[in-house]
């Protein structure tokens, strides 16, 4: 029977963006959304900070709330030295947040649903925080893998565990973001496809019955909005946590 089918993963396929120019430069639709999110965040700040009003308007408030939120996160998690890393954390947070939120809109590509993107982001964070650790502490940073106050004969067992635990950081960081975004979009697509299937199979009754998946999708939209914000927050706060470990070694 040739009818509508559920193609849940088709939405993640890469095509070219920006017309013939993009095709020549291998510019994908994923890059298009990345560019859009970068432009939006820079534009938002340029517009919001155009006038330095003492009593901020809506746009300036939004910008200030974002700034304060990330600044507090940095200071609370890393400590006063955390302000040095504020630009990095803020860039990561706003980029992922905008990427997640833009991905919720039709015709926008959710670039955080590709593990290549999230793994690149988390590997950058991982390598950077390790670099910060070695820069701040030199070779004493290796002590990070030796838990304090344990008998020497346990060390051959504990050091590999600590190293594995450390190496698992970029994996958990990237997989969490990627899996959450992908799962949400797949569920949306499945329910939407189910509506088409119902209508095609049962005609008018199916069309009435497809109110149920529609309602689920509406509820899912709210959940996805929460997940989009939360995942950006979790990514940013874990970045702070790793930088804290690198700076303070506990």
């Amino acid at each position: 029977m040739a009818g509508p089918t559920i193609d849940a993963l088709g939405q993640f396929s890469l095509t070219t963006g920006l017309g013939p120019l993009g095709r020549a430069g291998h510019f994908t639709n994923s890059n298009e959304t990345m560019l859009a999110s970068a432009v939006i965040i820079v534009g938002l700040f340029a517009l919001g900070l155009r006038r330095h009003a003492l009593v901020p308007g809506r746009l300036q408030s939004l910008v200030e709330i974002l700034y304060e939120f990330v600044r507090n996160m940095c200071v609370d998690t890393i400590g006063e030295e955390g302000l040095r890393f504020f630009p990095l954390v803020f860039t990561i947070f706003s980029f992922i947040l905008l990427g997640n939120l833009l991905g919720l809109f039709p015709y926008f590509f959710a670039f955080t649903s590709h593990i290549a993107v999230t793994l690149a982001l988390s590997l950058f964070v991982f390598i950077f925080s390790t670099g910060v650790g070695f820069y701040t502490h030199g070779f004493r940073f290796f002590k990070f893998f030796v838990p304090a106050g344990v008998p020497v004969w346990l060390l051959p067992l504990l050091v590999p565990i600590e190293i594995i635990s450390y190496l698992s950081r970029p994996v958990s960081l990237s997989v969490r973001l990627f899996a959450n975004m992908t799962a949400g979009h797949v569920m949306w697509e499945v329910f939407a496809g189910f509506m088409l299937l119902l209508t095609a199979s049962f005609g008018i009754y199916g069309a009435f019955a497809s109110v149920v998946p529609l309602g689920l999708n509406v509820a899912l939209a709210a959940l996805e909005l929460l997940v989009a914000g939360l995942q950006a927050y979790v990514f940013a706060i874990l970045t702070c946590l790793y930088l804290h470990d690198a700076v303070h070694m506990h």
């Binding site: 594995i164 635990s165 698992s168 997989v175 939360l230």
Partner: peptide, 22 residues
């Protein structure tokens, strides 16, 4: 609590994956 719920499951699996790959 929500932050933890998001984190815990993946943390466990990630360590396992890395250990097996190593």
């Amino acid at each position: 609590a929500i932050e933890l719920a998001m984190r815990l499951g993946v943390e466990m699996v990630a360590a396992m994956v890395i250990a097996v790959v190593v």
